[in-house]
Design a protein around this nucleic acid. Structure first.
Lengths: 242, 242
DNA sequence: GGGAGAATCTGCTTTTTCGCAGAAATGTTT
DNA sequence: AAACATTTCTGCGAAAAAGCAGATTCTCCC
């Protein structure tokens, strides 16, 4: 509950809520809760009835789907400005959870308020729709990689995906996320051992450098080149506000 | 170009365009083209700049992503009332195509007209957004199945997915789609031989019956039971109009 | 109804991936 | 700083999946 709780003075530059009229922003503020999550904490859990939208103010979130014996699979990574918790329909629930990968701050607005806002803030609604449309395109592409790539190439892909969403940290080309080998495995749809084996190979090939559990990408272009045979290309980030 | 070209008299019950005001429907009709596609024909092709939305009036469409050496992977199936061709951003293109699996009729509306309609037809915009949101949830779930299931279970999943989207045909439990074993392989992310081997197994286990290239599901519940360990559950179809 | 072409099917070998077990390293807590 | 817990790493055998080759069957079109 840091900062003020007001959208007007909120420092998050990409929040969709800012696309609402001032009048509506004030109205939404009355129905908004801002919560801080520690690393590892659940934003929402599989089976919960998601009855609102989560707007990521700041942080790093993994959206996981629970499959075989509730083993987690990371279907999406989210960061500042992204939206979590698709509007629920008819009360059915999907086995999808959102977990903070680092300390994060997220605003929640209930469905009723959001629905009303949709009908009075076309700019907000349209941009949010375009966000979903973009996410759909992105996941369609990732799905193909998952289906067709070898484990080795999926590991390379996961590193680039992490970089494209979370970027590097201040000290250079180190992946800016508190990820374990197991997280990478959960993105790739493989197991920890395979991830480690391939990271070791990548290190020998001077593509990455392991620094403890941190990973430094020493040859990003080389990783991308590995994936051109799959039509892989960088997915430019959407500019939410325009 | 059968039927009249008018949305007012259109027989498609689920078309999103019907959510626009009468005034706007008439305006859209002036910018709309209705095209018939034969089986196998491309609605749009990877690399095309998608500059509008396609509304499926009637038919069966596969949305494919071209990955390794342009091998196709089916990321989504679409039928009556569904929407294809996410709004393009900044001109970048994804390697995604849409192909008619049977004779289909699809209406196309250019981006400029659609964008204007968004701002004057909140009901239309909100419903379309919810459609995307639902599609996103669905593909997140499918992605997990793809990542965690064995080939055998993915084949079972593909059969159920085909059934849930296209249903059975009039003569009973035969999958109502003109699909090849290769199509199923492209949904599963495997090859034709594996699909055939597993279909043969399923037949021995009295789960399906092969009738030429057609597939009859003789024990749908049995197939679903096979997938409960993955938290698989039926995804109820959205009711577009409400 | 017959024939050409496409799709389906089967057996076999090779390759990839998985998964266990145990060692080493890292990082966290007291 | 030491002890503990977690994570990372490596080797190896087992299992799953892929890929090839060739036979059969189906379907569509004339």
């Amino acid at each position: 509950m840091e900062n003020s709780n007001s959208c007007i003075t909120c420092v998050s530059p990409n929040c969709f809520l800012k696309l609402c009229s001032n009048e509506w922003i004030q109205l939404i503020e009355g129905h908004k809760t801002e919560t801080s999550y520690e690393k590892g904490q659940y934003v929402f859990n599989a089976g919960d009835l998601v009855n609102g939208l989560y707007f990521v103010k700041r942080g790093k979130i993994k959206v996981v789907s629970n499959g075989l014996n509730n083993k987690e699979h990371i279907v999406r990574l989210a960061t500042d400005g992204h939206v979590l918790g698709h509007r629920g329909f008819g009360g059915e629930t999907y086995p999808i959870s959102a977990i903070a990968m680092d300390d994060s701050v997220i605003c929640f607005v209930d469905n009723e308020t959001i629905s009303k806002a949709f009908f009075h803030n076309p700019h907000f609604t349209v941009k949010l729709m375009l966000f979903y449309s973009e996410e759909l395109r992105g996941i369609e592409a990732r799905m193909t990689y998952l289906a067709q790539m070898t484990v080795r190439d999926r590991v390379a892909f996961a590193l680039l995906y992490l970089k494209d969403v979370f970027g590097y940290n201040s000290s250079g080309e180190i992946l800016n996320a508190n990820i374990t080998r197991a997280d990478i495995a959960d993105i790739c749809g493989t197991n920890v051992e395979q991830v480690i084996r391939n990271l070791t190979d990548f290190e020998k090939e001077k593509l990455v450098a392991k620094e403890g559990k941190k990973i430094r990408i020493t040859n990003e272009e080389g990783l991308r080149q590995m994936l051109v045979i799959y039509n892989f290309k960088f997915v430019p980030k959407m500019h939410f506000i325009s």
